[in-house]
Design a protein around this nucleic acid. Structure first.
Lengths: 145, 145
DNA sequence: TAAAGTTGATATTTATAAATATCAACTTTT
DNA sequence: AAAAGTTGATATTTATAAATATCAACTTTA
């Protein structure tokens, strides 16, 4: 059982988080989370999904950041650095070319991400923690010096 | 007359922006803007202050980003790159060490910024435009390759 | 001298974001 | 078979962020 393994059905996840299932579906619709979906369309949430949602709720309730604010912060993640995209890869990638949502929400058909499962991508899996995007940017800039 | 020259008193700025003077003072208190203050404490706003506020209001009213969301986005600006800070400069700088406000709101006493006028700093002056922080990060990462 | 401005504190209003619920009609799981 | 889940759509509630105002007592500007 790893933190990325999808194990919790929606009601369980909602209980773990003390929120409604509607809220979980709403967060997904807003592209804040990407739960696993079985062939039957049933959602399963991983521990790292749960942790990401905790951070999201802390941002909303404690830091008073709106959902759209969170989306914008997610859009600032230089995913092309995580993915080591070439110049060509970037040339028509919406995430690189300054759109306003998380990369997984704006990927287009002719990108290297198009055929990939974003829920398994390091961008989604490894940077769900509060503050991790800023940390990533800082470290990346520093290590390039 | 340059865009950074402080020329508009508060009532004029409020009229230009179609907002109240209270709101201007509130934005300042929230550290979103740094108007010039005369020796008499009277505020003067520059054209670039006005432009920054337009972007702030567009973020709030159209993009539905909260004020704290804007603050967090501002906190993601790698000011140390603008300022070309050394490792030593960074070592006890709150902006580098991950605080949650704009650098001009969190600078401490023993930083290279401590004795500087933040309203004249390139970080404040040149990156007030919507999307400019993300663009800066992108370009900085790209140029370091 | 009236108007414009300051500071600080407190109060009010208003629009609305976020969360939640309801309904309907279905499928899947236990 | 009941419970849990799906989708889509719509409605409601609630807390509150953001904006604005008021008051007081002062200073500065035109």
């Amino acid at each position: 059982m790893t933190k990325n393994e999808p194990i919790y059905p929606i009601r369980t996840a909602a209980k773990l988080l003390n929120i409604s299932v509607h809220t979980l579906r709403m967060y997904e619709k807003e592209h804040l989370i990407i739960p696993f979906k079985k062939s039957t369309s049933h959602r399963l949430y991983s521990q790292s999904d749960i942790d990401r949602i905790k951070c999201i709720r802390s941002a909303i309730n404690e830091d008073k950041i709106s959902i759209n604010g969170i989306k914008t912060i997610y859009s600032m993640m230089p995913c092309w650095e995580v993915m080591n995209c070439s110049k060509k890869d970037r040339s028509n990638c919406s995430a690189y070319l300054l759109h306003s949502g998380p990369c997984w929400a704006v990927k287009g058909d002719d990108t290297i991400c198009a055929s990939k499962d974003c829920r398994k991508c390091s961008v989604y899996q490894d940077y769900g923690e509060c503050g991790s995007i800023k940390k990533f940017i800082r470290n990346k800039l520093t290590e390039k010096e």
